[in-house]
């Protein structure tokens, strides 16, 4: 019931209160901003940034904050929170630090309101009623903006790691090795195939050894993809030898109807490379033997 009562404040009075609030925050901009920065430093937040940087960002956040209170719109603040996040995420600033500084600002401003209206408790209550929901919305906006930006950065990094985790290696002229390690989902399988086909063309490879010793399990969709990779490589003129096929994966391949007799397989990577070298016409001879021949 009380909740309802709070929200039934006459509109002009709520507006009036907010205007008064904004005027107070503008008037005391210098003092409040300095107090906020002091509290940030004291709480050891944003340690990755210099004092000047903290001050500059704090000024922008403060002004955007007051503007958001005044206009009751969050767009400008949202945009600022995004660009701030973009700048500070690479510096290693953590989510709890961002939430921490916004909560500190909320606290600094609330304390100043306490100070201003301490002799008028009923007015203080009304001012806080007007201030708190807006302040919460603002804190939420900044934190969510930061988290979203962080997630975007993380997914970008994951993509980069995926690229790195499937290196197409050239061991000899015309011979590529693709060691696959870890979990292969359809997305990674697709990426892997495209990378290999590009690699075949760039390196003019004639034989490819795909080593799946490091792949624990493979579902039918991914196994199917492996078969397609082998066939597509052949269409580019490269023979594929698959090594390290576990009995489980071999079973999956048989289950989806792959004729294992048509797929070149070898027990381990070394065996695969030997077969590949033979088919390319290389002959590996121990050095003692070459010396004896010379």
């Amino acid at each position: 019931m009380q909740q309802t009562h709070r929200h039934t404040l006459p509109i002009d009075s709520a507006l009036e209160l907010r205007r008064e609030l904004v005027a107070h925050l503008r008037e005391n901009r210098t003092v409040l901003r300095e107090e906020w920065v002091r509290r940030i430093t004291e709480a050891q937040l944003l340690r990755a940034m210099t004092k000047e940087e903290i001050f500059a960002e704090a000024t922008s956040v403060y002004d955007n904050y007051v503007e958001a209170l005044e206009t009751d719109t969050l767009e400008a603040l949202q945009a600022y929170a995004r660009s701030l996040s973009e700048r500070i995420i690479p510096r290693g600033v953590e989510t709890d630090e961002v939430v921490g500084i916004v909560l500190l600002l909320r606290d600094v401003l609330a304390r100043s309101l306490f100070g201003k209206y301490q002799n008028n408790p009923s007015k203080l209550n009304r001012v806080l009623d007007a201030y708190e929901p807006a302040a919460n919305r603002i804190a939420n906006t900044v934190a969510v903006g930061f988290v979203q930006e962080r997630e975007r950065v993380i997914s970008q990094q994951q993509e980069a790691i995926r690229e790195l985790s499937t290196p197409v290696l050239q061991v000899r002229e015309r011979l590529l090795i693709l060691p696959i390690i870890g979990v292969v989902d359809p997305h990674r399988a697709r990426q892997l195939t495209e990378q290999l086909l590009r690699g075949i063309r760039t390196n003019r490879a004639r034989v490819v050894v795909i080593d799946i010793t490091g792949v624990a399990a493979m579902d039918a969709a991914v196994a199917n993809h492996l078969v397609q990779t082998v066939e597509a490589s052949r269409l580019l003129g490269a023979d594929v030898i698959v090594t390290g096929l576990s009995p489980e994966i071999a079973q999956t391949l048989v289950n989806i109807g792959v004729d294992l007799g048509k797929m070149k397989t070898m027990g381990d990577l070394q065996g695969g490379i030997e077969v590949a070298e033979q088919s390319l016409g290389y002959k590996v001879v121990p050095t003692t033997q070459t010396e004896a021949m010379a």
Partner: peptide, 10 residues
């Protein structure tokens, strides 16, 4: 045969 074409064919 282009890589994209090979992939589509299989």
């Amino acid at each position: 045969v282009q890589p994209e074409v090979a992939l589509t064919m299989v």
